[in-house]
């Protein structure tokens, strides 16, 4: 009795995953980077690298996007905006961090105006190291994220507490 229903839901699951990994729409957010990473992201979008062949599209509105591409450390001012952009995105959503600053704080580590790296504010699914990473590296990172989605593994949705507010 149960078998066909299971089968149908499995099939639906498969189709959904297929669609999801074939059409990741991205939005780009700079939470305090030096702009080096942003320029590399823009270079990734140029015809030379043509990420539309993977179905990746840069969208203007967070409501349309699936992947949030973050660059830079999180400054105190940008923290609110970063969280808000993240919360405006509909589920399921993924976060990709581009550049060393987003991974560890990089050269901005310990600055008076910096909260910290991105994983202190948002649950991150993929890190792309480099200062700044090359477009090939960014594409590779996104493709790895897609493989990750296909396997159905994701980090737990926990926003880490303990963000220091006081100066």
């Amino acid at each position: 009795m149960n078998f066909p229903q299971n089968y149908v839901s499995q099939l639906m699951e498969k189709i959904t995953t297929w669609a999801r990994i074939n059409s990741p729409w991205a939005i780009h957010f700079n939470s305090g980077s030096c702009n080096g990473c942003d320029i590399e992201i823009l270079a990734t979008l140029t015809p030379r690298y043509d990420i539309e062949r993977f179905g990746i599209k840069l969208r203007g509105s967070p409501r349309h996007a699936d992947v949030l591409i973050c660059t830079g450390p999180v400054t105190r001012q940008a923290r609110e905006r970063l969280l808000r952009t993240y919360e405006q995105m509909p589920e399921p959503k993924f976060v990709v961090v581009v550049g060393s600053c987003g991974i560890s704080g990089g050269v901005f580590q310990g600055c008076y105006n910096v909260v910290g790296h991105i994983n202190e504010v948002l649950p991150v699914d993929a890190f792309i190291p480099g200062c700044p990473p090359r477009p090939e590296a960014i594409i590779d990172g996104i493709v790895k994220l897609l493989a990750h989605i296909q396997r159905g593994t994701r980090p737990a949705l926990v926003i880490k507490p303990g963000v220091q507010e006081a100066a």
Binding site: T16, W18, A19, N22, S23, D50, E52, R53, G55, D66
Partner: peptide, 16 residues
């Protein structure tokens, strides 16, 4: 001068 999307792209977008 790009390669462009694959043929099922609009379908995948819509389902997603």
């Amino acid at each position: 001068n790009r390669i462009g999307p694959r043929w099922f792209q609009p379908l995948a977008d819509t389902i997603k």
